[in-house]
Design a protein around this nucleic acid. Structure first.
Length: 247
DNA sequence: AAGGATGTTGCCTG
DNA sequence: TCAGGCAACATCCT
């Protein structure tokens, strides 16, 4: 559920309902935020930024983050109590086990859309600049940095590093410029592959590294370790993923 | 079938 | 003072 492409799928499903402009007729759920303020407010837009799903009203927006376990149902309900349920004239949206919060004022002041790998306004040059500002940072950490690659999660991280044959413990300052540009490029490319495979229910079948035990290029065992400041699972091949490091 | 994970926040400790 | 550790969230897969 939680990586950027999955949020794009949610946004597309909700846009198909064509309820933009409709008012919220009823709110419920076990969230502690002041959900009643959405009552009778017309929705101006449904948007996404990285792993955030955004419902924009006139003076504020609702931010939904699904974390690890969050889920949603459109015109359906689960057994469990929703964190937040929004009823419109022609549709009902239910969110479960997610983080919800309000963002006040103009959403464009709050989000840098060019940092979202799924965005039309994604700016690879700016991402590259950010990487040059982090000479000691590790490849496995920067890909998960939402200020640089909003939407990239642990699956995309592992698959991108494998695809470009870069060892997760490589540092920014040691990676050749061409390869760093490829890192930026593939963070977006793989995210769109992820989107298509997820829509076709074939995402897992396309994993080459994530959760895998054997390198499909070398036929030798993958390394599995929790690496970097982020300390997230990394699956990588010590043979074909090159480690660029000063040490 | 227990344990960990596609993630982030916030509190506690040293 | 602040970085690091870890619980919390609550579901699904292995």
């Amino acid at each position: 559920m939680p990586e950027g492409p999955s949020i794009v799928i949610l946004k597309e499903l909700i846009e198909e309902l064509q309820i933009t402009g409709q008012q919220v007729l009823e709110v419920s759920g076990n969230t502690k935020i002041d959900k009643e303020r959405m009552l009778n407010q017309p929705v101006r837009a449904f948007r996404s930024w990285g792993k955030h799903f955004l419902i924009c009203f006139d003076d504020f927006s609702l931010r939904i983050h699904f974390l690890l376990f969050g889920s949603y149902r459109i015109n359906e309900r689960k057994e469990s109590i929703p964190r937040l349920s929004l009823r419109f004239q022609t549709a009902e949206i239910n969110f479960y086990a997610c983080s919800v919060q309000f963002i006040e004022g103009d959403i464009n002041q709050f989000y840098d859309w060019t940092a979202d790998v799924m965005s039309e306004t994604w700016d690879p040059a700016r991402a590259l600049e950010k990487l040059y500002c982090l000479p000691d940072a590790l490849a496995c950490d920067v890909l998960l940095d939402q200020n640089i690659f909003a939407g990239v999660g642990n699956i995309i991280k592992n698959e991108v590093l494998f695809r470009i044959r870069l060892h997760p413990l490589s540092t920014m300052q040691e990676i050749p410029r061409e390869l760093l540009m490829l890192l930026v490029e593939e963070a977006r490319n793989y995210s769109f592959d992820f989107l298509e495979w997820k829509k076709a229910y074939t995402l897992k079948a396309h994993w080459l590294a994530h959760t895998k035990k054997i390198c499909p290029r070398c036929d030798i065992p993958f390394e599995k370790a929790h690496l970097g400041k982020t300390n997230r699972r990394s699956f990588y091949c010590n043979n074909c993923q090159i480690r660029y490091t000063g040490a």
